[in-house]
Amino acid sequence: MTTIAERARELTVSREPFVHATVVRAQGPTSARPGDAAVIRADGSIEGFVGGVCAESSVRAAALDALRDGDALLLRVLPDGAAPFPEGPGARVVVNPCHSGGAIEVFLRPMLPAPALRVVGDTPIGTAVTTLAAFLDFDVATSDDYAGCTAVVVAGLGRGEQDAIRSALDAGVRFVALVASRQRGAVVLDELGLTDAERARVHTPAGLAIGARTPQEVALSIMSEVVRAIQVDGLAPASGAPAVRPQQAVDPVCGMTVLVGPETPHARVDGQDFWFCCAGCLASYTAA
Protein backbone atom coordinates (compact mmCIF):
# COMPACT_ATOMS: atom_id res chain seq x y z
CA MET A 1 0.00 0.00 0.00
CA THR A 2 1.11 3.55 -0.72
CA THR A 3 2.01 5.36 2.48
CA ILE A 4 0.93 8.94 3.12
CA ALA A 5 4.55 10.07 2.76
CA GLU A 6 4.78 8.35 -0.63
CA ARG A 7 1.46 9.84 -1.71
CA ALA A 8 2.64 13.30 -0.66
CA ARG A 9 5.76 12.85 -2.79
CA GLU A 10 3.64 11.79 -5.77
CA LEU A 11 1.43 14.87 -5.49
CA THR A 12 4.47 17.11 -5.09
CA VAL A 13 6.09 15.70 -8.24
CA SER A 14 2.85 16.17 -10.18
CA ARG A 15 2.67 19.78 -8.91
CA GLU A 16 -0.75 19.28 -7.36
CA PRO A 17 -1.52 21.45 -4.31
CA PHE A 18 -2.60 19.57 -1.18
CA VAL A 19 -2.60 19.76 2.60
CA HIS A 20 -0.55 17.36 4.71
CA ALA A 21 -2.42 16.71 7.95
CA THR A 22 -0.76 15.12 10.98
CA VAL A 23 -2.34 14.30 14.34
CA VAL A 24 0.07 15.75 16.90
CA ARG A 25 -1.96 15.12 20.07
CA ALA A 26 -4.96 12.98 20.94
CA GLN A 27 -6.92 12.74 24.18
CA GLY A 28 -9.19 9.74 24.58
CA PRO A 29 -11.71 8.60 23.88
CA THR A 30 -10.85 9.07 20.21
CA SER A 31 -9.95 6.78 17.33
CA ALA A 32 -7.04 8.96 16.19
CA ARG A 33 -3.52 8.53 17.50
CA PRO A 34 -0.50 10.87 17.39
CA GLY A 35 1.30 10.32 14.10
CA ASP A 36 -1.81 9.48 12.10
CA ALA A 37 -1.66 11.40 8.84
CA ALA A 38 -3.60 12.20 5.69
CA VAL A 39 -3.45 14.32 2.56
CA ILE A 40 -6.38 16.52 1.60
CA ARG A 41 -6.62 17.59 -2.03
CA ALA A 42 -8.20 20.74 -3.46
CA ASP A 43 -11.45 18.92 -4.25
CA GLY A 44 -11.88 18.00 -0.57
CA SER A 45 -11.00 14.34 -1.03
CA ILE A 46 -8.91 12.83 1.77
CA GLU A 47 -6.46 9.94 1.79
CA GLY A 48 -5.27 8.61 5.11
CA PHE A 49 -6.71 8.80 8.61
CA VAL A 50 -6.99 11.66 11.10
CA GLY A 51 -10.00 10.49 13.09
CA GLY A 52 -13.59 9.37 12.68
CA VAL A 53 -16.21 10.86 10.40
CA CYS A 54 -16.97 13.89 12.54
CA ALA A 55 -13.34 14.85 13.14
CA GLU A 56 -12.51 14.22 9.50
CA SER A 57 -15.23 16.64 8.39
CA SER A 58 -13.74 19.41 10.52
CA VAL A 59 -10.25 18.65 9.22
CA ARG A 60 -11.43 18.78 5.59
CA ALA A 61 -13.03 22.20 5.99
CA ALA A 62 -10.01 23.68 7.80
CA ALA A 63 -7.61 22.13 5.27
CA LEU A 64 -9.36 23.83 2.36
CA ASP A 65 -9.05 27.18 4.14
CA ALA A 66 -5.34 26.51 4.72
CA LEU A 67 -4.92 25.60 1.06
CA ARG A 68 -6.62 28.81 0.00
CA ASP A 69 -4.60 31.03 2.37
CA GLY A 70 -1.31 29.17 2.07
CA ASP A 71 -0.77 29.31 5.84
CA ALA A 72 -0.09 26.38 8.15
CA LEU A 73 -2.72 25.83 10.82
CA LEU A 74 -2.99 24.00 14.14
CA LEU A 75 -6.55 22.70 14.45
CA ARG A 76 -7.95 21.51 17.76
CA VAL A 77 -11.16 19.48 17.56
CA LEU A 78 -12.98 19.48 20.91
CA PRO A 79 -16.17 17.84 22.12
CA ASP A 80 -19.05 20.08 23.13
CA GLY A 81 -18.55 21.62 26.57
CA ALA A 82 -14.78 21.14 26.63
CA ALA A 83 -12.48 23.64 28.32
CA PRO A 84 -11.59 26.61 26.12
CA PHE A 85 -8.42 26.62 24.07
CA PRO A 86 -7.06 30.02 22.99
CA GLU A 87 -7.19 30.84 19.32
CA GLY A 88 -4.68 33.07 17.62
CA PRO A 89 -2.64 33.37 14.45
CA GLY A 90 -2.05 29.90 13.11
CA ALA A 91 -4.51 28.20 15.48
CA ARG A 92 -8.19 27.36 15.28
CA VAL A 93 -10.66 25.64 17.60
CA VAL A 94 -13.63 23.61 16.39
CA VAL A 95 -16.25 22.45 18.90
CA ASN A 96 -17.60 19.21 17.53
CA PRO A 97 -20.89 18.15 19.22
CA CYS A 98 -20.94 14.71 17.65
CA HIS A 99 -17.29 13.97 18.38
CA SER A 100 -16.57 10.85 20.45
CA GLY A 101 -15.76 12.84 23.56
CA GLY A 102 -12.01 13.06 23.15
CA ALA A 103 -9.95 15.88 21.71
CA ILE A 104 -7.37 15.93 18.94
CA GLU A 105 -4.90 18.46 17.62
CA VAL A 106 -4.05 18.29 13.93
CA PHE A 107 -1.27 20.20 12.22
CA LEU A 108 -2.30 21.23 8.71
CA ARG A 109 0.51 22.14 6.34
CA PRO A 110 -0.45 23.38 2.87
CA MET A 111 1.90 22.07 0.20
CA LEU A 112 1.81 24.40 -2.77
CA PRO A 113 3.86 23.79 -5.92
CA ALA A 114 6.74 26.15 -6.54
CA PRO A 115 5.98 28.72 -9.24
CA ALA A 116 7.12 27.56 -12.67
CA LEU A 117 9.28 29.86 -14.77
CA ARG A 118 10.13 29.33 -18.43
CA VAL A 119 13.22 31.12 -19.76
CA VAL A 120 13.54 31.55 -23.53
CA GLY A 121 16.90 32.49 -24.97
CA ASP A 122 20.42 31.10 -24.69
CA THR A 123 21.96 34.44 -23.79
CA PRO A 124 23.97 35.70 -20.80
CA ILE A 125 20.82 37.35 -19.40
CA GLY A 126 18.78 34.18 -19.96
CA THR A 127 21.44 32.12 -18.18
CA ALA A 128 21.56 34.58 -15.28
CA VAL A 129 17.76 34.53 -14.92
CA THR A 130 17.77 30.71 -14.92
CA THR A 131 20.43 30.60 -12.19
CA LEU A 132 18.75 33.19 -9.98
CA ALA A 133 15.28 31.67 -10.42
CA ALA A 134 16.58 28.26 -9.32
CA PHE A 135 18.21 29.91 -6.27
CA LEU A 136 14.81 31.46 -5.44
CA ASP A 137 13.24 27.97 -5.52
CA PHE A 138 11.32 28.51 -8.75
CA ASP A 139 10.62 25.43 -10.84
CA VAL A 140 12.60 26.40 -13.93
CA ALA A 141 10.90 24.72 -16.89
CA THR A 142 13.16 23.28 -19.56
CA SER A 143 10.54 21.93 -21.98
CA ASP A 144 8.85 23.88 -24.76
CA ASP A 145 5.48 23.51 -23.03
CA TYR A 146 4.28 26.79 -21.53
CA ALA A 147 1.21 25.27 -19.83
CA GLY A 148 1.22 25.72 -16.08
CA CYS A 149 3.91 28.42 -16.11
CA THR A 150 3.53 31.33 -13.72
CA ALA A 151 5.80 33.54 -15.79
CA VAL A 152 7.87 33.43 -18.97
CA VAL A 153 11.04 35.45 -19.52
CA VAL A 154 11.90 36.02 -23.17
CA ALA A 155 15.61 36.83 -23.34
CA GLY A 156 16.46 35.86 -26.90
CA LEU A 157 17.58 39.41 -27.72
CA GLY A 158 16.02 39.33 -31.17
CA ARG A 159 15.90 35.56 -31.69
CA GLY A 160 12.58 33.70 -31.49
CA GLU A 161 10.90 36.41 -29.44
CA GLN A 162 7.60 36.70 -31.27
CA ASP A 163 7.00 32.94 -31.41
CA ALA A 164 7.77 32.65 -27.69
CA ILE A 165 5.46 35.52 -26.74
CA ARG A 166 2.64 34.19 -28.89
CA SER A 167 2.99 30.65 -27.49
CA ALA A 168 3.07 31.90 -23.89
CA LEU A 169 -0.02 34.06 -24.35
CA ASP A 170 -1.89 31.23 -26.08
CA ALA A 171 -1.04 28.95 -23.14
CA GLY A 172 -2.66 31.45 -20.76
CA VAL A 173 0.52 32.76 -19.13
CA ARG A 174 -0.37 36.02 -17.39
CA PHE A 175 3.16 37.44 -17.05
CA VAL A 176 5.56 37.56 -19.99
CA ALA A 177 8.78 39.53 -19.53
CA LEU A 178 10.46 40.65 -22.76
CA VAL A 179 14.09 41.68 -22.46
CA ALA A 180 14.36 44.60 -24.86
CA SER A 181 14.67 48.36 -24.91
CA ARG A 182 11.44 50.30 -24.61
CA GLN A 183 11.55 51.22 -28.28
CA ARG A 184 12.39 47.77 -29.64
CA GLY A 185 9.92 46.11 -27.29
CA ALA A 186 7.12 48.33 -28.60
CA VAL A 187 8.02 47.40 -32.18
CA VAL A 188 7.95 43.67 -31.36
CA LEU A 189 4.52 43.94 -29.75
CA ASP A 190 3.15 46.08 -32.58
CA GLU A 191 4.22 43.48 -35.13
CA LEU A 192 2.45 40.74 -33.17
CA GLY A 193 -0.88 42.59 -33.41
CA LEU A 194 -1.84 41.86 -29.82
CA THR A 195 -5.13 42.80 -28.26
CA ASP A 196 -5.08 45.32 -25.42
CA ALA A 197 -5.63 42.50 -22.91
CA GLU A 198 -2.76 40.45 -24.35
CA ARG A 199 -0.46 43.44 -24.46
CA ALA A 200 -1.11 44.14 -20.78
CA ARG A 201 0.33 40.69 -19.98
CA VAL A 202 3.67 41.46 -21.66
CA HIS A 203 6.15 43.49 -19.60
CA THR A 204 8.83 45.32 -21.53
CA PRO A 205 11.38 46.53 -20.74
CA ALA A 206 11.54 43.56 -18.40
CA GLY A 207 12.40 44.13 -14.77
CA LEU A 208 12.25 46.87 -12.17
CA ALA A 209 14.23 50.06 -12.72
CA ILE A 210 17.27 49.49 -10.48
CA GLY A 211 19.95 50.79 -12.84
CA ALA A 212 20.99 47.24 -13.80
CA ARG A 213 23.99 46.89 -16.11
CA THR A 214 25.41 43.37 -15.91
CA PRO A 215 23.45 40.22 -16.87
CA GLN A 216 23.27 39.29 -13.19
CA GLU A 217 21.88 42.71 -12.24
CA VAL A 218 19.34 42.53 -15.08
CA ALA A 219 18.31 39.08 -13.84
CA LEU A 220 17.85 40.52 -10.35
CA SER A 221 15.59 43.27 -11.69
CA ILE A 222 13.53 40.78 -13.71
CA MET A 223 13.07 38.31 -10.86
CA SER A 224 12.22 41.15 -8.49
CA GLU A 225 9.37 42.11 -10.80
CA VAL A 226 8.21 38.50 -11.05
CA VAL A 227 8.29 38.00 -7.27
CA ARG A 228 6.39 41.25 -6.74
CA ALA A 229 3.74 40.12 -9.22
CA ILE A 230 3.30 36.85 -7.30
CA GLN A 231 3.50 38.12 -3.71
CA VAL A 232 1.83 41.53 -4.10
CA ASP A 233 -0.39 41.28 -7.19
CA GLY A 234 -1.50 37.67 -6.75
CA LEU A 235 -0.08 36.35 -10.01
CA ALA A 236 -1.26 32.77 -10.51
CA PRO A 237 -0.01 30.06 -12.90
CA ALA A 238 -1.60 29.36 -16.24
CA SER A 239 -3.55 26.33 -15.03
CA GLY A 240 -6.66 26.48 -17.15
CA ALA A 241 -9.95 26.36 -15.27
CA PRO A 242 -9.60 27.36 -11.60
CA ALA A 243 -10.07 24.68 -8.99
CA VAL A 244 -13.67 24.46 -7.87
CA ARG A 245 -14.03 24.74 -4.11
CA PRO A 246 -16.38 22.05 -2.81
CA GLN A 247 -19.80 23.22 -1.65
CA GLN A 248 -20.22 23.50 2.12
CA ALA A 249 -23.34 23.18 4.25
CA VAL A 250 -24.21 23.39 7.93
CA ASP A 251 -25.53 20.26 9.62
CA PRO A 252 -28.93 21.35 11.06
CA VAL A 253 -28.55 18.95 14.00
CA CYS A 254 -25.04 19.56 15.37
CA GLY A 255 -24.16 22.79 13.56
CA MET A 256 -20.99 21.43 11.98
CA THR A 257 -19.78 22.68 8.62
CA VAL A 258 -19.61 19.75 6.20
CA LEU A 259 -18.35 19.40 2.65
CA VAL A 260 -21.04 18.36 0.20
CA GLY A 261 -20.08 15.32 -1.84
CA PRO A 262 -21.55 12.10 -3.23
CA GLU A 263 -21.04 10.31 0.11
CA THR A 264 -22.27 13.12 2.38
CA PRO A 265 -25.46 12.06 4.23
CA HIS A 266 -28.30 13.98 2.64
CA ALA A 267 -32.03 14.43 3.00
CA ARG A 268 -34.59 16.48 1.11
CA VAL A 269 -37.39 17.71 3.35
CA ASP A 270 -40.28 19.87 2.10
CA GLY A 271 -38.33 20.65 -1.05
CA GLN A 272 -35.20 21.75 0.81
CA ASP A 273 -31.85 19.95 0.83
CA PHE A 274 -29.99 19.23 4.04
CA TRP A 275 -26.57 17.64 4.50
CA PHE A 276 -25.23 16.00 7.64
CA CYS A 277 -21.86 15.15 9.16
CA CYS A 278 -22.83 11.53 9.76
CA ALA A 279 -25.64 9.01 9.51
CA GLY A 280 -26.52 9.60 13.17
CA CYS A 281 -27.40 13.25 12.62
CA LEU A 282 -29.36 12.32 9.50
CA ALA A 283 -31.39 9.75 11.42
CA SER A 284 -31.98 12.19 14.28
CA TYR A 285 -33.25 14.90 11.92
CA THR A 286 -35.54 12.72 9.84
CA ALA A 287 -37.02 11.12 12.97
CA ALA A 288 -38.00 14.46 14.45
Rank of each mutant, 00 (worst) to 15 (best):
Ala128Met: 00
Pro242Cys: 10
Leu189Asp: 13
Ala236Gln: 15
Thr150Asp: 03
Pro29Tyr: 04
Val188Lys: 10
His266Gln: 11
Val119Thr: 12
Leu73Phe: 02
Gly148Val: 06
Pro262Met: 12
Arg184Gly: 01
Ala55Met: 03
Leu157Arg: 15
Leu235Met: 13
Asp36Ser: 04
Thr214His: 12
Leu235Arg: 07
Leu112Val: 14
Asp71Leu: 06
Ala141Trp: 03
Val253Ala: 06
Gly52Cys: 03
Ile40Ala: 00
Thr2Leu: 14
Val13Tyr: 05
Arg174Glu: 11
Val227Ala: 13
Val232Ile: 13
Thr30Met: 01
Leu108Gln: 02
Gly148Asn: 01
Gly160Glu: 13
Asp170Lys: 13
Val94Glu: 12
Val129Phe: 09
Ala249Arg: 08
Asp69Gln: 08
Pro110Thr: 03
Val95Ser: 05
Val19Tyr: 08
Ala103Gln: 03
Ala288Trp: 01
Ala55Phe: 00
Phe135Ala: 15
Gln162Gly: 14
Leu108Ser: 05
Val269Phe: 11
Arg15Met: 09
Ala219Glu: 09
Gly193Pro: 14
Gly172Cys: 08
Ala141Ser: 07
Ala186Lys: 14
Gly51Tyr: 00
Thr264Phe: 07
Val226Gln: 01
Gly51Pro: 01
Phe135His: 14
Glu10Tyr: 06
Gln27Arg: 12
Gly240Met: 06
Ala5Ile: 09
